[in-house]
Amino acid sequence: MSDFIQSIQQLSAFFFASDAKGMKTAYSELAKIHPAPAVDDWSSVEFSFNRLFVGPRALLAPPYASIYLDNDPNRVMNESTMQIRQFYGLLGLVSPWLNKIPDDHIALELDALWQIETALINSASPQLSDMREYLLEHLQLWVPKFRQRVLSIDDIHPAIHHIMDLLQQTLTTALQDAE
C-alpha cells in the first residue's frame, strides 16, 4: 500500500480515536511516513483533542463538514451531511453510526477516501476516479477552514497542529495529483 493510502487510513484512525492510546497508535504509524514532533505527554494531547472535537464542553472545532459548509455553525445533520450520506450510498457504503454520528465526521470522510483509494488499486474505474476527485474537492472545501479553526485556538497540543497540517498537506497533494 502506498504511503498516501496509509496516511489517509491513519489520519482517519486518529480522528476516530476515543482515547490517548488510539491517538498515539495512529500518530506513531503516521510518524513512520512523515516526520512528526515527539510527544511526551499523551494525556495532554487527549485533553486538547476532547476540547476541540469531543466535549463535553461546547466544541472548539467541531469535526463535521456541515459546520463549515452550511452557513450554520450550530447544527449538525444539516443538508450537506445528507449529501455526503448520499455520496457514501453511491459508493455502496453506509455509516455504521447512521443517525448517531453525523455522516460528515472527518474520520468517516477520510475512511471513504481510503476505501476509494484502495478500490482504485484493483480497478481503474473512471467513475470511481471521478468520485475520488469529488470527495477530495469536497474535503478541500472545508478542511482548510477546520484546520484554521483548530490553529486559532490557544493552548492546543502541537501534536494536533501537526496532524492538522499533515491532513491539509495530504489532501492538497492528492488533489494536485488528481488534476
Binding site: Q9, S12, A13, F16, Y88, L90, L91, G92, L93, V94, S95, P96, W97, A107, L108, D111, A112, W114, Q115, I116, T118, A119, Q127, L128, M131
Partner: peptide, 14 residues
C-alpha cells in the same frame, strides 16, 4: 456508479 467492495477499515460498512 456501482458499489465498491467495502473494506474492513475504521468505519464505513457495505
Amino acid at each position: 456508479v456501482g458499489a465498491i467492495a467495502a473494506l474492513p477499515g475504521n468505519g464505513l460498512l457495505r
